[in-house]
Each structure stands twice: as C-alpha cells, then as structure tokens.
C-alpha cells in the first residue's frame, strides 16, 4: 500500500503553553481521504504545522509522498496543496492578481484549471479578497491549492463557517480529486457530518495524543453505543468497552462491534453511533 502521508512518533512541545503533541502517528494511503477530528486545542493545527514544516518538531518522522520534507525540498512542495483555516492571501489581492503571484511561484501552475475552478465556484476575478465572504475566500484558497496539480491536499478547517450548499460543492471537488489513486487528502474539521460524507478514515486526537484511528465505515456500521442501566453496565467486561459516559439515568458505552456486543449482552440496546458521539465519548468519557 502506497502512503501519501506517514507520521511516526511525532512529538512537539510548546514551553509557553505547556501543550505537547505526544507520539502522534498516522498514515494516509494514496487514493483516500483522512478526516482529522478533535476538540479545539487538541493538536490538529499543530500536527498540520509539523507536517508542513512551519514549526520545528522535537522528534519523530514525517514522510510526505514517501520523503521527509526539509526547507530545501521545494520540488516536493509543488505536489502539496494547502488550505489553512485563515484567509491565506493578502486581502488586497484579487483572484486575477493571485493567479499571477502563484504562476510566479509554482512551476506546475495550471491557469486553465484555476479559471475553471474559480468559474465553478462563481468567484469574480477582479474583486478584492477583502470584499469576499468567508465561503468565497475558502473556495478561492481551494481553487489555488488545486491549480498546481498537487498529489496531497492538506486542509485545516477548510469547510468551517461555510453554509451547507457551499460545503457540498467543495466536498464534491474533494471527492473528484481522490478519484485519482495517487491523490490523498488530510482534512481536519469540526464538521463531522462532512467527514462522514467523504472520509475513508477518521483519526481522533485529544490533548495531543491520537486516541483512535479507524475506517469510517467501521465507525458507522460496526461501532455502536450501548445504552445501559447501572446493572447492565456492571455486567459488561472491561475489554468490551472502548469508553463510557455515566449520565443521570443511563450509561452510554462505546463498543467496537455493535452486533457481536448485542449477541453477547442480550437485553442491552445498542444504537448506531455518529462520529460526533464517538468523539464525545472518547473525549468526555472514561475508559
């Protein structure tokens, strides 16, 4: 299996805040989309900064398209498209001027594709970015990120703050992108419904540590949440529960094999679980 991104044992600490990425490892196979989920301050952006070499890591290895990237590896960065959560570009630029800037930086810049994408997203070429809505700004960032034919897209909250229609348009573009089996996407997002639509894998991060990586289909179709009374909860073997959360009238237990659990523990109702609920149980629950 070819890996577009492979992180092994990444650590990065900040002395001032005390925050630390602790032994983060993840891998994205080519042709897939990985959703990267976690609460605010969990370490998503720090992981992305580490991948992109904008911060200096303490230890670990990061391989992008099979290579460790240093400042000198400019050719490798031609193959990486990036959309950060901020505006990215100077507010006084227009999409037309931005294209001129990008053309002077990326050897692989494809003006025709850029025009096609900006047309598809209905972005006016002569209007300044400062006059754009957040949705338009993010669409422009995505158009720019894709117009130099990257093989790996790294998206940090690229769909946050956007309306459902705009998000749908953007998700379609991402799905088209990974139709090429050499392409891959790492997408951090708070909007787990987007990830449920397009991701192949989901990685959960909490307080700088990866707490779960699984295929999305497994999470949705195999994982479940058992709604237990306190007596039922006591019957469940420790090894059969991933996390649990005690509520006023019931205890929710995250289980890995919904059907198997149902057979083993008759009488306990097991529901399908959403990505949001898994995150909540992993972060707020106990093991």
């Amino acid at each position: 299996m070819n890996l577009s991104l492979e992180i092994t044992g990444l650590t990065k600490s900040y002395a001032d805040s005390g925050f630390m990425l602790d032994n983060v490892s993840l891998a994205i196979p080519s042709g897939t989309i990985m959703g990267f989920v976690g609460e605010n301050g969990a370490g998503k952006t720090t992981t992305i900064k580490s991948i992109l070499n904008t911060v200096q890591i303490d230890s670990g290895t990061i391989r992008l398209l099979g290579k460790e990237m240093t400042d000198r590896d400019t050719a490798l960065r031609e193959d990486i498209g990036v959309v950060l959560d901020s505006a990215n570009f100077s507010a006084i630029l227009t999409p037309g001027k931005l294209a001129k800037v990008m053309r002077g930086i990326y050897r692989q810049w494809d003006q025709e594709l850029y025009v096609r994408l900006t047309d598809k997203f209905a972005l006016p070429m002569n209007r300044k970015i400062k006059e754009f809505s957040r949705g338009m700004t993010m669409k422009l960032a995505i158009a720019a990120a894709m117009s130099h034919h990257p093989k790996l897209l790294i998206l940090d909250e690229a769909t946050s703050g956007l309306d459902p229609i705009t998000r749908e348009e953007i998700l379609e573009v991402f799905l088209e992108f990974v139709e090429d089996e050499h392409h891959a996407i790492l997408m951090s997002s708070h909007i787990t419904s987007d990830l449920e639509k397009i991701a192949d894998y989901i990685t959960f991060i909490h307080q700088g540590k990866i707490i779960l990586t699984a295929m999305k289909d497994e999470l949705i179709y195999d994982y479940g949440v058992a709604r237990c009374t306190s007596d039922q909860f006591r019957r469940i073997a420790e090894g059969d529960r991933l996390a649990y959360r005690v509520k006023e009238h019931q205890t929710d237990v995250l289980v890995k094999d919904r059907r198997g659990f149902g057979q083993q523990y008759s009488g306990i109702m097991v529901d399908q679980v959403s990505i949001d609920e898994i995150l909540l149980l992993l972060v707020k629950g106990e093991n």
Binding site: R77, F89, R107
Partner: peptide, 8 residues
C-alpha cells in the same frame, strides 16, 4: 505561514 507551504 502560507508562503512556507509553497515551493520556495
């Protein structure tokens, strides 16, 4: 930050 992600 963004310019560091580009091939320069």
């Amino acid at each position: 930050r963004f310019e560091l992600t580009m091939p320069i």
